[in-house]
Design a protein around this nucleic acid. Sequence first.
RNA 1: GCUAUUAUAGCUCAGUUGGUAGAGCAACUGAUUCGUAAUCAGUAGGUCGGGAGUUCGAUUCUCCCUAAUAGCUCCA
Length: 585
Amino acid sequence: MFKIKLEGGKTMEVEKKTFWHTTSHILAQAVKRLYPNIKLTIGPAIDNGFYYDFDTDEPFSQEMLEKLEEEMKKIVKEDYKIERFVLSREEAIKLMEEKEEPYKVELIKELPEGEEISFYKQGEFIDLCAGPHIPSTGSVKAFKLLSSSGAYWRGDEKNKMLQRIYGISYPKASELEEYLNLIEEAKKRDHRKLGKELELFFFDETAPGMAYWLPKGFKMMNVLIDLWRKEHESRGYQEFSGPQLNSSSLWKTSGHWDHYKEDMFILEDADGNEQALKPMNCPNSIKVYQTKLRSYKDLPLRFNDIDVIHRNEKSGQLNGLFRVRMFRQDDSHNFIMESQIREEIEDIIEIIKKLYGIFGLDYRLTLSTRPEDFMGEIETWNRAEEDLRGVLDEICGKENYEVNEGDGAFYGPKIDIKMKDCLGREWQMGTVQLDFQLPLRFNLSYIDKEGNKKTPIMIHRALFGSFERFIGIITEHYAGAFPVWLAPTQVKILPIAITHKEYAEKLKEQLSAKGIRVEIDEREEKIGYKIREAQLQKIPYMLIIGDKEIEANAVGVRSRKEGDIGSLSADEFMKKLQDEIKNYK
RNA sequence: GCUAUUAUAGCUCAGUUGGUAGAGCAACUGAUUCGUAAUCAGUAGGUCGGGAGUUCGAUUCUCCCUAAUAGCUCCA
């Protein structure tokens, strides 16, 4: 809520979105004043501010935005009362036709019969709008137009591209400044920036959307993979690896050729046969399933893999590690009987809770149910959805997940894990999808108790989503200051002078032998300089080695978080470290 | 893919109203041997993203391409 001041010194609380919506009208008013030929379309409030879409052939330049801000200031200063009025459909259309606003006419024509058609007026400006609005334009003391970009009319690629202006506003200048600072701070956490600074990964022009993993970044990925393997091996998962390239016939059987071809890298083998790099692992898991005749006693069968997959994403979709063309899903395909859905999902949700708990991540769970174009038996769908709800209710609590009715895949319902990046954009992380269709397409079977062939259900599940995206998210989550267990370099030994080098080397060997990721800074630099560098590299522990330490057979421990924490014996430090690593600190 | 913007040294960035470039950090060399977030001095480093055009002359202007960024659209 925002507090705004009214005439006579009274204050009033308004919804942020109401305030932002009014600001979008002020923007539209300014646009009509400066560029009367530009046509209005829609201008809603969003989670962080507002936008307004305009139809114009000339895109908004930075200078135009600045001029618009100036004009908006005038409108605020002129402090117009915002008045609502209602018209009949005919009157409304007539008014908008007179004002030559074709998009508004289109909108009015589509409003359902009987719905009130309301307008809002501020000064000379009138806009079709359901409201509500704040009482007058004078309250919008602080605002900023943040950016402009193209946006399709009604969000449809086939429609005309309009020009959108994004903005934000507040009742007080200090609040605006605070918000802008927050954005600046958030940008410092950007994984693309940190990935470069901390030498985790990089991208090259010759391989768009495909990360080069530098030694430090790849070390981290391996630590994650170790964790993932540990959590799965003990739960009956069996890891395998399959081919990168399969002939088109496989993708035709799986249905990808019809539904996903655009996103696949397709090439030819030496004989001219059509092949495609795998965009997902499901068909190859199925091939593994098919190597034997399976019994009901074998189920569930859980085949997991972290093979690299390729998706030919359109260039405009690429975004750091969040959206790439080559990545590793922490994938598994679990083959189960219908009676095992609930238990299997329960087990998977338990793993999710455990893994995400280790990182302390804030995530959103969504259940997506049967879409209109579903395939399969409606009873199977109903039972499966009931099972999914049951598990979520029980393990997560009714309040802690959302249901997106009709948003499931055509082949089965699913549970998704969603997270926000440092700029508030939401990304899908893990996913757990039931699939009733693929086993049918591949004619999968198991032999039941009575000796009959039955079709198993398949669960596609990736919990981190992909290692790439997950590393992007945790880099921003920790702002690059990874906990000890995960940090690519856990300890940096900093000898004060050359004479301390030998002891430092010995220490390094000791730590290395225990599996600690340790480096040594042997350069002939001052200790303050070395500390600064290790600190900027966000290394969890620095060990300062000088005469004192050698004499006492100790290490001077400096923590990234707490600074100098004094002297410990090498054994004490080792124990502390191992303890933290064991507990994922 | 679409709209807009951007691309200059390893990194962060300045600059040239058209006369082939500069800083800080990093690197290297030398001096300094140092106690908890930057020691000093020097050296080297760039076909100004790629290609074409205009021009006596292009890093600068125009066009094409590539990549990145924001948004849109898409995402089995």
